[in-house]
């Protein structure tokens, strides 16, 4: 019964093909009009608690979250911008308020905040960062560490004025 054989094969082949339909990475076209704003990442705002306090350090520290904040278009560094940071660390879950903290960018638009070691959660060692202060469009980032052993992670913001 060759036709019947084909039916069964096509069933399995189609099933596998459907499964293989994986999420494609959006391709950002080259920007002629200067620096493009950073898009919010999928899942970036998960477990966000608005209004995290500005702190010198989250918990005991030992891990560094660093990055830069620039303006879309001309790429000018933005000083004094509040960046909120949270993650699943050795000291708490993403949803724990004590896992959240914020810091301000310096004159060069750079920020760095010491926090506890990030550990893999929900399948990936990752952190969360948010710009949500009103002057620019909100951006939520979810960078993934190349290795769970890393002791730092960086994320960069290019913000679009509101």
């Amino acid at each position: 019964m060759p036709t019947v054989l084909l039916t069964r094969r096509s069933l399995i082949v189609n099933g596998c093909a459907a499964m293989a339909a994986v999420v494609s990475v959006p391709i950002v076209p080259a920007q002629a009009q200067g620096l493009a704003p950073t898009p919010t990442m999928r899942g970036g705002a998960n477990n966000y608690l608005p209004g995290a306090p500005i702190v010198n350090r989250i918990g005991v520290g030992g891990f560094w979250m660093t990055g830069t904040v620039r303006r879309a278009g001309d790429g000018a560094p933005l000083a004094g911008q509040r960046i909120q940071i949270w993650a699943h660390t050795t000291e708490g879950h993403e949803r724990d308020p004590h896992s959240h903290g914020a810091t301000l960018t310096d004159a060069n638009g750079e920020f760095r905040l010491e926090m506890p070691q990030i550990v893999p959660a929900f399948g990936q060692p990752h952190g969360h960062l948010a710009y949500d202060s009103g002057e620019f469009e909100p951006v939520f980032l979810r960078p993934v560490m190349p290795s769970a052993k890393d002791t730092s992670l960086s994320a960069h913001f290019v913000l679009q004025p509101v």
Partner: peptide
Amino acid sequence: LWVTSPPDVVDALLFASPTPFSAW
């Protein structure tokens, strides 16, 4: 997992998760 982190599970169930393994 939903109790641990509701938004991550909602993303997974809606096939909107940043992690490809969730969809699988």
